[in-house]
Amino acid sequence: MTGKRVLTAYAVLYLLFLYAPIVLLPLFAFNDGTVIAFPLRGFTLEWFEELTRTAALHQATLNSLVIASSTSVLATCLGMFAARAGARFRFPGKGGILGFIMLPLVLPEIIVAISLLVVLLQLGLSLSIWTVVAGHVLICTPFAVAILNGSFAGLDRSLEEAAVDLGETPLSTFRLVTLPLVTPGIVASLLICFTISLDEFIIAFFLSGNQPTLPVYLWSQLRFPGRLPIIFALGTILVCLSVGLLVAAEIFRRRGLRKAGLKDTGGFL
C-alpha cells in the first residue's frame, strides 16, 4: 500500500513539475499588474486587448501561419511518399534511407539551424519566411513519416489490387480507395506538423531574417519587462491552440483506425 502511495505522490510531483510553469501563463495573463509576482492583483483582459493593437505582432502571427501551413502541407506530402514507399516496395538500402529521413528527429536543432544558415548564405539566398519553411519541413517530415507509416502500412495491399481488378486505373484507385483510407492519417500529420512549426523557435530564430515568426517575436519582446504580461497572454493563446490541434490530430488518427477496422499501433498521444 505504501508503495502505491509513494508512486502516486511521485506521479503528482512529476506532473506538477511538467505543467506548473505552464499554469503560470494564464494566471499572469489575466493578472492586473505588470510585475510577475504573487500576490495576484485582480482580473483584467487588458493584455489581450493590447495584443490586438500591436501591428508587429500581427505581422509575426501572419508569418507564423504562412510558415506553419506551408510546412505542414510540404512535410505531409513528403511523408506520404516516404511512408508509401516504405510500406509497398523493397529496394536496396531501404532501411538506411528511411533511417536517414528520421534522423532530424534526434539531431540537435541548433546544429540543424546553424548548418542550414551556413548553406543558405553560401548559396547566396536571402533569409525569409521561405528559408524557415525549408528548415521546418526538414524537422517535420520525420513526424509526418511516423504518423503516415501507420496509415500506409495498415492498408491491405489487396484493396488497391481489387480496385484495379474491378476496372480502375492506378490513379483513380488512389483517389477512390487509398486516399479515403489514409485521410485520417494525413489530417493528423497536417495538424501535428502545423503545431510543431508554429511552436518552433531555434530554426526560425536563425533563418527568419527580418521576418520574425511568433516565437521569435515573443523572444524579442522579453527585453521589455513592461510587456511581459502581453507575452503571457499570447503564450496562453498559443498553448491552447497547440493542445487543441494535437487533440484534434489524435482524434482523427483514431477515428481513421476505427473506420478502416485496424488496430491501434502507435501515435503520439
Binding site: 491491405d156 489487396s158 489490387e161 481489387a162 480507395v177 479515403p180 478502416a260 477496422g261
Partner: peptide, 13 residues
C-alpha cells in the same frame, strides 16, 4: 477476369 482475394479486400470505407 475478376478476382476474389484471400483477404476478400472489401473496401472498409
Amino acid at each position: 477476369t475478376n478476382m476474389v482475394f484471400q483477404s476478400y479486400a472489401i473496401f472498409p470505407h
